[in-house]
């Protein structure tokens, strides 16, 4: 079991934007749960406000965003800002989906994401990365 002191690491897996491709989000959510994390999945078609609100209410340590619609450069910074406005600056931001490399670099450089995973990453790479941060 993955724990910070006495508390399990809590992860919000979120699907912001309008695309309905939830295969990746659901496989990753289940992989994280099987690896011992506490996982909350938002379901589809979430607005940035809804994602930030759920992150706050669920008091999560990690927000994982799955975006396959090409709207990542709009959505990720908005969610990051709303999290910061909610006082959740230290949440680990992880993004997956169809994110071209230069976009991934920019998201990380501007501090909007801590890590971007590409298609084809083994589940162990993702769970291993998050474990290494706690």
């Amino acid at each position: 079991m993955i724990q910070i002191s006495s508390k399990k690491v809590r992860i919000l897996v979120a699907k912001p934007g309008l695309d309905g491709h939830d295969r990746g989000a659901r496989v990753v959510a289940r992989g994280l749960r099987d690896a011992g994390f506490e996982v909350i999945y938002t379901g589809l078609h979430q607005t940035p406000e809804q994602v930030a609100e759920t992150a706050l209410q669920e008091d999560v340590d990690v927000v994982g965003l799955s975006i396959l619609s090409g709207a990542h450069m709009t959505l990720v910074p908005r969610i990051k800002k709303m999290l910061a406005d909610n006082g959740m600056n230290d949440v680990l931001m992880v993004v997956g989906g169809i994110i071209p490399e230069e976009d991934a670099e920019e998201l990380i450089k501007c501090g909007n994401a801590d890590k971007v995973f590409n298609p084809g990453e083994p589940l162990e790479t993702i769970t291993g990365y998050i474990k290494s941060k706690f």
Binding site: L18, D19, H45, A71, M73, T74, L75
Partner: peptide, 17 residues
């Protein structure tokens, strides 16, 4: 995606999409 989901391009939900 906005067309698929029934939103016009000027909808708040369409931002970035």
């Amino acid at each position: 995606m906005p067309t698929i989901m029934g939103y016009d391009s000027d909808s708040e939900r369409s931002l970035g999409e």
